[in-house]
Amino acid sequence: MMTNLFSSFDPSSSIFNISLNWLSTLMGILIIPSMYWFMPSRYNILWNNIFFSLHKEFKVLLGPTGWKGSTLIFISLFTMILFNNFLGLFPYIFTSTSHLTLTLTLSLPLWLCFMLFGWINNTQHMFTHLVPQGTPSILMPFMVCIESISNLIRPMTLAIRLSANMIAGHLLLTLLGNTGPSMLTLLVTMLIIVQIALLILESAVAMIQSYVFAVLSTLYSSEVN
């Protein structure tokens, strides 16, 4: 029995008092060995095309000063979030990306590494980012404060954006699903159609949010070079 609406997102599945919910985060690894088949399947070709497209786009975002191979970090980040977002759409599978525990674990170390690298190696360049080009002299102190605050809250905005979007769709599906037993047959049919439409929308949100997370991380990385 749920005590409140958000308890549906609480870790509760266990065997021998061992929590199994967070194992869903690693389920995507089970699909990786098929990448090493001698003859590539359609699945392999599809993923290779996706990775190649992401590589080209992230390379443009990073610019000519970006480190070689750094796009692999953001492609891996995109893949991990995408797997977990989609797994959360299946019944009785724990949605790990709806928890700040996971999203902050992804965003905070990335942002911290970018900041340490930028301030240690490109200190002057980091100072110039605090004052946008063309800012009047009288507004410069305010702009420094605003830019510093916006820089500090970046990991929180990345984490909250992902978890909030995952929670919002799941809550809506849960709320509508709970009203089904008390509805008439005709209304239940309409409810099923609405639920299917929302599920398709959530699939799109799962892809978009993983892409947004990876792209914003790439943009933050490009600013420190």
Rank of each mutant, 00 (worst) to 15 (best):
L173E: 06
W67L: 10
F58L: 03
S8F: 08
Y43N: 12
L82T: 06
I31E: 09
S222N: 11
T79P: 01
T135L: 05
Q124Y: 07
L187R: 15
W67P: 00
T79H: 10
S217Y: 06
L23K: 04
M143L: 02
N151I: 05
I167G: 03
G177D: 09
I81C: 05
L216M: 11
T79Q: 14
P181L: 03
T174A: 12
S13A: 11
V205M: 10
I192T: 11
S14A: 11
H170P: 03
N178W: 09
I18D: 01
Q209I: 00
I29Q: 06
M35K: 14
P33V: 13
T25L: 07
R161P: 01
T65N: 12
I81L: 07
N122W: 02
V144G: 03
Q195F: 07
W37D: 05
P136V: 01
G66D: 03
N49Q: 10
L5P: 00
M1C: 14
Q195V: 05
L82V: 09
I196E: 05
P91S: 02
E57Q: 13
S182F: 15
L20Q: 10
V224S: 02
T174V: 01
F58C: 00
F51E: 07
S70E: 15
L187I: 14
M190Q: 14
N48Y: 13
N165A: 06
N49A: 13
L186I: 15
M143S: 05
Q195I: 11
P40V: 15
I193K: 10
I93R: 04
L201S: 13
F117N: 08
I193N: 08
L198S: 04
L186D: 15
I120N: 12
L112Q: 07
S13K: 13
I200N: 07
G63A: 06
I200A: 11
S8M: 15
F142Y: 09
F16S: 11
M183H: 04
T101D: 09
F9D: 04
T97P: 01
S13Y: 11
S203E: 06
S163G: 03
L173K: 15
P109H: 13
P109N: 10
V205P: 01
G28L: 02
F52S: 14
I18C: 02
L184V: 15
L175I: 12
S210E: 11
V60T: 13
H99R: 06
A197S: 09
F52C: 09
L5G: 00
S96I: 06
L184S: 15
Q209S: 15
F58I: 02
M156N: 02
P33E: 14
I15F: 12
L108E: 04
S107F: 07
L72S: 08
F127C: 12
S217C: 15
N44K: 08
K68Q: 10
G169L: 00
W37M: 10
M183V: 12
M143K: 00
N178A: 13
L198G: 05
S98E: 02
T97F: 00
L108I: 15
W47K: 05
P33M: 14
A164N: 09
W47Q: 06
I192W: 13
M190T: 14
F78G: 02
V224H: 09
T179C: 06
R161F: 08
T189L: 15
W22C: 03
S98T: 02
